[in-house]
Design a protein around this nucleic acid. Structure first.
Lengths: 219, 219
DNA sequence: TCTTTTCCGTTGTAAAAACAACCGACTTAT
DNA sequence: ATAAGTCGGTTGTTTTTACAACGGAAAAGA
């Protein structure tokens, strides 16, 4: 597990904790490691977990198969990212997704209760981890809510308006740059790229917006 | 603040804590109260907050106005529910939504850092609150991810398949009852009710599903 | 420089969704 | 018992979207 400490140091969860302290934290938390070959399942739908997982090597997909067998990829997890945090609560029920390695991968995981119930003074940085974890989930939460807000519009235009308005607000200006190219923006908003491109141009022709590449201006 | 203790006792955040202990927790957390008349803003877009809010009386809307002034309601908060948890992290930036009372309302709120940084032994149930809060956010997180999964399908049918498959999984049977009527389900999936009704009937005619009222069966 | 790839706007067509309007079955209130 | 309201299925029309295919500009690479 030691060799992954430099990776962990750069994660949100362990940010602000020195390498020596991470080592002692890992044992304090009862952290375990699991290695998976490409194609293997790390977690399966139906399992019950109460752990937080951190990917320290490789790449994994969180995916689900519907009743008729159609598969869809819900998210792609890269090194340093956390997953499983939605199932931390005792009443969260069985896992509804599969987690599968798309490259040879290693994950480090530990039981959430181990963090929450152990007295904070047990080890020096325990409290810091609680904070980090909390802020990480809180942050994820906000992003999910915002995305859901954009996607709740029924038309592509409504989704674009919602998204562009938010970026403008966040950047505090009616002229701003979005962190996506067209394809990525379309994927984020769950619409077809060419249809979105088309809609953007209509909005431009109607005098609502101006844009060039990833730079937009609301009028 | 005392009169709201029975309400708080029934919230997720204070579940498992006795009424006497809630009183001491509130002062330990530095909880404050804010009362708003119908129509007043509890929080405005652009504010910076690091508090968790609990609605103890009335009803409020979380809403946003886009750049061109179109208003949309993101969620309706009822008594006992928590909000603001997405902005707990220090780097979460300015609030992107407005929070407005649609009835005369009262909220109780306290700084998250007060929970996370104070030593757990400061008061008896402090640690319990940390757990409750964590599980509440974790739970919200899972629900958001699931909903996003359903909404990422491009067609109404895809959304329905995703949703129905999940409920079937969760209830562990291909026959199950959904907790929505048609209008509510359509609202949840962000589609038109009649179009959804239509699609459900097509799926039935194609032999994919059977249903009656809120009871469904996948075939 | 020449080739290849990426990005993105454009077009046309077929499919799908929204929207509005209506109806019958059923429930609830007066 | 009657009236009013809710719920959900159905239909037709209009708008919107997905999808596929193409082409030009710019960037990346050989």
């Amino acid at each position: 597990m030691k060799k992954y400490i430099p990776v962990l140091k750069r994660t949100k969860l362990f940010s602000g904790v020195g390498e020596e302290d991470i080592a002692s934290l890992l044992s304090c938390l009862g952290a375990r490691k699991k290695e998976c070959k490409k194609g293997e399942y790390i977690l399966r739908e139906g399992e019950h977990i109460s752990d937080i997982f951190i990917l320290v090597e490789g790449k994994i997909h969180i995916q689900k198969d519907d009743y008729w067998g159609n598969r869809s990829i819900l998210s792609v997890i890269s090194v340093g990212e956390m997953f499983g945090e939605g199932y931390a609560a005792p009443e969260s029920g069985a896992l509804l997704n599969d987690v599968v390695a798309v490259e040879d991968s290693s994950v480090i995981f530990f039981d959430v209760k181990r963090i929450l119930t152990t007295c904070s003074s047990a080890c020096r940085f325990h409290n810091m981890i609680v904070q980090n974890m909390f802020f990480a989930i809180s942050d994820k939460n906000r992003k999910l809510v915002q995305k859901l807000g954009h996607m709740s519009g029924r038309t592509t235009r409504a989704k674009l308006i919602s998204y562009l308005s938010e970026v403008a607000k966040r950047q505090g200006s009616s002229a701003f740059t979005v962190p996506f190219n067209r394809q990525q923006l379309a994927d984020y908003l769950c619409v077809d790229r060419s249809a979105m491109s088309n809609e953007l141009c209509k909005m431009r022709d109607e005098g609502m917006i101006k844009f060039e590449k990833s730079r937009f201006e609301l009028l």
